[in-house]
């Protein structure tokens, strides 16, 4: 445990070396791989979770347009039809 701590301390003292180490993967071919394949793999579990929750919600009877109607009814209260509005 002492050796990693010592290395970390030295890197803090030498920020240029630390920066170089962090960017060493950015070689002409090294950084080209960190694109869609990696991002897709990172995002995939979240997409699957969203899909699973969507299937659960659909099976439980939730529908997007019903949810939209409920939200609209909650946030936009209807005016009483007997109230005469002044339009001018």
């Amino acid at each position: 445990m002492r050796a990693p701590g010592l290395v970390a301390f030295l890197l803090v003292l030498a920020p240029r070396s630390a920066h170089a180490c962090a960017t060493c993967i950015a070689s002409p071919f090294g950084d080209r791989t960190y694109t869609w394949p990696y991002l897709g793999l990172i995002v995939l579990p979240f997409l699957l979770l969203a899909a699973a929750f969507g299937i659960f919600a659909h099976s439980a009877g939730y529908r997007p347009h019903l949810l939209a109607h409920r939200l609209a009814a909650r946030f936009w209260a209807k005016d009483d039809s007997l109230i005469i509005k002044e339009t001018t």
Binding site: R32, T33, P37, G40, L41, L44, L48
Partner: peptide, 19 residues
């Protein structure tokens, strides 16, 4: 879901090599 993750890993490996 587990199968999608399995194939997602394989496709990612293929595309990393491809890129």
């Amino acid at each position: 879901c587990s199968e999608v993750m399995f194939f997602g890993g394989l496709v990612s490996a293929f595309l990393v090599l491809r890129v």
